[in-house]
Amino acid sequence: MTLSTEHLPLARKEGLLIERLSDEVLVYDLDRKKAHCLNQAAALIWDHCDGKTRVEEMARILQKELDAPADEELVHFGLREIGKKNLLDKNYFVEREKNKFSRRELIKRIGLAASVPLVMSVLAPKATAVASCVKPCADATQCSSPCTQCVAGMFA
């Protein structure tokens, strides 16, 4: 997989809530109701997706900031990860033909898992999924908010 040279990577700005922790970045996608946590490497790449910074330059920044080996492959991998989560501008085009390194191969190459870009995601739960139901029930027809099913004589 390679990236188009026509457009430089640009981070998506619309419809996101962004919170910064010391090394990581938390992103909440208002459209998809998903939260993401970008580790330090992914956050560095995403921060430099300004439509001006080239991949080679990102690799240099990564190497300096993480004090670990980083090359263009690592940045491409990070861009793919970030792109998969819809955190890049939709006009940024990712070619999908030439597949390169997997996360595991990159960790083997670099020798440091923390330096490999990682984006963890969680789908926002339904409000009813995070409430305890403590009352007894006979069958599902008795279910009412916030309980949705009747399991072994108790609402769940």
């Binding site: 109701k33 939260a35 946590c37 580790n39 995601s121 969680v122 926002a124 739960p125």
Partner: peptide, 22 residues
């Protein structure tokens, strides 16, 4: 867990995250 992973664990149990994320 890192603070970011922890935040996701809290979010995964937050009642109003869908209705009032901001």
């Amino acid at each position: 867990m890192t603070a970011g992973q922890g935040a996701l664990a809290l979010l995964n149990n937050t009642v109003s995250i869908k209705s009032r994320p901001a």
